[in-house]
């Protein structure tokens, strides 16, 4: 049984691509055959985050419109078995995504992969609709910040009314909250919305909380999904989130203050 999971948010810059790359990689590390698709036509970035930008020859759009076979466009990750990337076009625009074309590609991928991760573009335009239309599950990436939470709520509304499952009257798309850029210090100082606030407003179950962490930028500089950095807290949190996607019951990390020694505490040493 294959699962199509959209990583979406409404708002831009909250960490969709980082999250899609990290979760997809984490699922593949757990032995699941996984493909990550970039739906952000014209602003392709997934390949860059995954570090395979120089290996792109054909893309998603070529498969839809130009008679290129899927296997010619899929890029197998060199570091992780079971992981492939389907890059998108940098030169075309969202109109190149036809409903039937996307459907055909998804159906073909379903035969080969267990997890199909759709990295959605920001906004609520065509590209975002296409990315969420086929979803069985949705990961709503949210920052603890007012505009992001509001946009996430909007996307949840769209998921429940415009997805294929909604149109066909099937079981609704299963939604998950992924709270990213969570800065526990600022939460404790009352400067940032806390997890419970966001949960109360959006009213969907939490898949993971990713701490604000310098390693995320570092990983993107290197073109390496952050879960491959064993020392990264964000990487650990993404691995936990992937495990929860697989149905495991794991306690949330980095949402409560760590116990610190007196010296650490006085100088507020942050890891």
């Amino acid at each position: 049984m294959s699962k199509v999971i959209v990583v979406t948010s409404g708002k831009g810059g909250v960490g969709k691509t980082t999250s899609a790359a990290a979760l997809g990689t984490a699922l593949a590390l757990r032995g699941k055959k996984t493909v990550i698709i970039d739906f952000d036509v014209g602003l392709r970035n997934l390949d860059l985050i995954m570090g395979c930008e120089r290996r792109v020859v054909f893309d998603f759009i070529n498969v839809i419109n130009d008679g290129i076979r899927l296997n010619q466009a899929l890029i197998k990750d060199k570091r992780v078995d079971n992981l492939s990337i389907l890059p998108t076009s940098q030169t075309r625009d969202k109109d190149a995504l036809s409903q039937e074309g996307v459907e055909k590609v998804i159906e073909e991928l379903r035969k080969e992969f267990e997890y199909i991760i759709c990295d959605s573009p920001a906004g609520i335009e065509k590209g975002a609709y296409m990315a969420l239309y086929h979803a069985d599950e949705a990961i709503v990436v949210t920052n603890p910040e007012v505009s992001s939470v509001r946009d996430s709520d909007r996307i949840l509304g769209i998921l429940s009314s415009k997805s294929k499952r909604a149109e066909h009257g099937d079981d609704p798309v299963k939604t998950h909250l992924l709270l990213t850029r969570y800065d526990l210090d600022r939460v404790q100082r009352g400067e940032m919305l806390k997890l419970d606030d966001v949960l109360e407003i959006l009213a969907i179950p939490v898949l993971g909380v990713i701490p604000q962490c310098g390693s995320v930028l570092q990983a993107s500089n290197l073109g390496m999904p952050v879960v491959l950095d064993d020392k990264s807290k964000a990487g650990q949190a993404y691995k936990d989130a992937a495990a929860r996607l697989l149905g495991e019951d794991i306690e949330l990390r980095y949402v409560n203050p760590e116990k610190r020694g007196l010296v650490d505490w006085l100088f507020r040493r942050s890891a």
């Binding site: 910040e145 007012v146 939470v149 509001r150 709520d153 909007r154 509304g157 939460v187 009352g190 400067e191 940032m192 919305l193 806390k194 606030d197 109360e200 407003i201």
Partner: peptide, 17 residues
């Protein structure tokens, strides 16, 4: 300020919905 954010959001999201 986080409390303010929560209050504003609660109202706004209800209106949006």
């Amino acid at each position: 300020s986080a409390d303010k954010a929560r209050e504003r959001l609660t109202v706004l999201v209800a209106l949006d919905r």
